[in-house]
């Protein structure tokens, strides 16, 4: 791979353009994706933009072919990409927004906490301290509404998925799968090791924005008691 390969601008289809900043999971690459998204939303051609979709490493821009052809938007985006690449260092240095997510660890709300502790050769309390002692980067949302792809989990608490996935994982469940951690915003089937649960709604169509964890920001988990979980779950 040469240094000049990225950023790469290419058509995705006849009404979308894709800007790739790399092909790996990397904070700096991800920061450029969100910087470009902001640039496009403030650009003079935003009225011709139907939607932008950020991912770990790339941004898709869907546009109105009645207004812009591929050559036009490629030229406009190129200018913004150059500016984004220059600005990127400054952006990634900024302390981004930090959302705090309360989590009741263990017990029936986190039935796999002991499995994770055993696998790690640690106490349950140490697993909680490590999991809640880290700021996680929200690389992107996807898979399901509000589902965050989080980066930054400590490898010491990594744990394989369940050999048989659960048919029903309650909404708000916090889990670990290999070296990833995440939260199920809605009830769904799932094979992650469940270590706790948050009482807050992670996805609410009536909220603005609808997702509690926003792409490009940081989150951390704050331990709460089972009692506090129940009180907050009732008031949510």
């Amino acid at each position: 791979m040469t240094l000049s390969e990225y950023p790469r601008i290419l058509p995705a289809n006849d009404s979308s353009i894709l800007i790739e900043f790399g092909d790996s999971i990397d904070y700096s690459i991800n920061a450029q994706v969100y910087a470009l998204q902001t640039e496009i939303e403030n650009s003079n051609f935003v009225d011709a933009v139907i939607e932008t979709i950020p991912s770990y490493r790339s941004l898709l821009v869907e546009y109105d072919v009645g207004t812009l052809n591929y050559g036009d938007i490629r030229d406009q985006v190129s200018v913004l990409v150059k500016r984004t690449t220059v600005m990127e260092a400054a952006i990634s240095d900024q302390a981004s927004e930090l959302h705090q997510i309360p989590v009741a660890y263990g017990g029936e709300l986190g039935p796999d906490l002991e499995t994770v502790a055993e696998h790690a050769g640690l106490d349950v309390e140490e697993v909680i301290a490590i999991h809640s002692g880290t700021d996680y980067h929200v690389f992107m949302l996807g898979f399901a509404p509000g589902f965050p792809y989080l980066g930054g989990m400590d490898e010491r608490i990594a744990c394989p998925r369940l050999s048989t996935p659960r048919t029903r994982v309650p909404a708000g469940s916090v889990g670990i799968a290999e070296s990833q951690t995440g939260v199920y915003p809605n009830e769904s089937p799932g094979g992650w090791q469940l270590i706790g649960r948050t009482p807050i709604a992670l996805f609410d169509v009536d909220a603005d924005p609808p997702a509690a964890m926003l792409p490009g920001t940081q989150v951390n988990f704050v331990p709460i008691s089972q009692q506090e979980y129940e009180d907050r779950a009732r008031s949510e």
Partner: peptide
């Protein structure tokens, strides 16, 4: 590494059998 998806994308998973993504696709 997960990438944005779109209507009409022809993706090829490990079994080599193409899938055309349609309206209810996941965003990535």
């Amino acid at each position: 590494v997960s990438d944005p998806a779109y209507m009409g994308a022809v993706q090829v998973p490990a079994d080599g059998k193409p899938i055309i993504l349609l309206a209810d696709r996941q965003p990535t």
